[in-house]
Amino acid sequence: MIHFVLLVSRQGKVRLTKWYSPYSQKERTKVIRELTGLILTRGLKLCNFVEWRGYKVVYKRYASLYFCMCIDQDDNELEVLEIIHHYVETLDRYFGSVCELDLIFNFHKAYYILDELLLAGELQEPSKKIVARLIAGQDSLVEAAKEEANSISNIIAQATK
C-alpha cells in the first residue's frame, strides 16, 4: 500500500502531496521536512529506495522534480517505481512535455490524474489510454459547465438592461 505521494522540487518546494494514511498536519509537516532533507541530499548514483521509520520511500527524479512514494516494508519497490513512471508518462501525455510550471499552475489536473491512477493507496487503472479518455471526459464537462455559466450570465446581463 502507498501511504503518501510527494512531489518535491530540487529546491525543496513541495509541489503536490497526497496522503492515503491518516497523519495530523503537524506530522505531515515533519514528514515532508525529514524526507525532503533525506532525499535531496542523496547522491545521484545511489539507489532510489530509502528505509525510513519502518517504511520504504521510493523516489525517482524527473527533470527538476522528485516523485516520492512511501510504501510498506514488504511491498515491491520496482512496482512502485513503475507506478511513478506511469504517472509521469500520463502527465506527459496530458501536458505535452510536463514541467514543474504545469504542476504549479494546473495542480488540480495533476491531482485528478493521480486520483485516476491510485485509489486508497493502490493502483486503480494501469491503462494510460483509459486514464487519458477519463481526463478528456472531465475536461469536456468543465468546458460545458463554463459555457453554460457564460450563457446564463449573458442572459442575466440582457435581462437587466
Rank of each mutant, 00 (worst) to 15 (best):
S64H: 03
H108M: 07
V88T: 03
L91D: 02
D75N: 10
A136W: 01
E125V: 08
E77T: 13
A159S: 05
I156N: 11
E116R: 10
Q138M: 07
V50M: 07
Q73L: 15
F95S: 08
V88D: 02
F95C: 10
V50P: 10
E148M: 12
V131D: 01
L101D: 04
Y59G: 08
L101F: 10
E116P: 06
Y112W: 00
I130K: 13
F49N: 04
V57Q: 02
V57G: 02
L81H: 00
Y87Q: 03
R61F: 07
K60Q: 08
H108V: 10
G121S: 05
E143G: 10
G121D: 06
G137P: 06
A145V: 13
V98T: 10
H85A: 09
N76G: 07
Y59T: 09
V57K: 01
E125G: 03
A136I: 01
M69R: 01
N150V: 11
S140C: 04
R133S: 12
C68H: 00
Y55M: 11
I104P: 03
G54T: 13
K128N: 02
A144S: 15
V80E: 00
N150H: 11
K60G: 03
F49T: 08
L101V: 11
K128G: 06
Y59K: 13
E148G: 11
Y59A: 09
L103K: 05
F49H: 02
T90Q: 12
C99G: 05
L117H: 09
C68P: 06
V80T: 08
Y87W: 04
F95I: 09
I155L: 15
G96E: 06
F105L: 12
D75Y: 04
D102F: 03
M69F: 02
S127E: 08
D92L: 01
Q158H: 10
K161P: 01
Q124E: 08
Q124F: 04
D115H: 07
L78W: 02
Y59M: 11
N150T: 09
S97M: 09
D102A: 01
A136L: 07
T90M: 09
A157Q: 05
D139H: 06
V58L: 04
L65I: 14
W52R: 04
L141F: 07
L65Q: 06
Y87T: 09
L91Y: 01
D75V: 05
I130H: 01
Q124D: 07
K146Q: 15
I135T: 14
E125T: 13
C68R: 01
I104F: 05
V88I: 12
A120H: 10
V80M: 02
Y111T: 05
S64I: 02
K161I: 07
E143N: 14
T90K: 04
H108I: 05
R93G: 12
K146W: 11
E100N: 05
K129M: 09
I113Q: 00
V142K: 12
G137R: 09
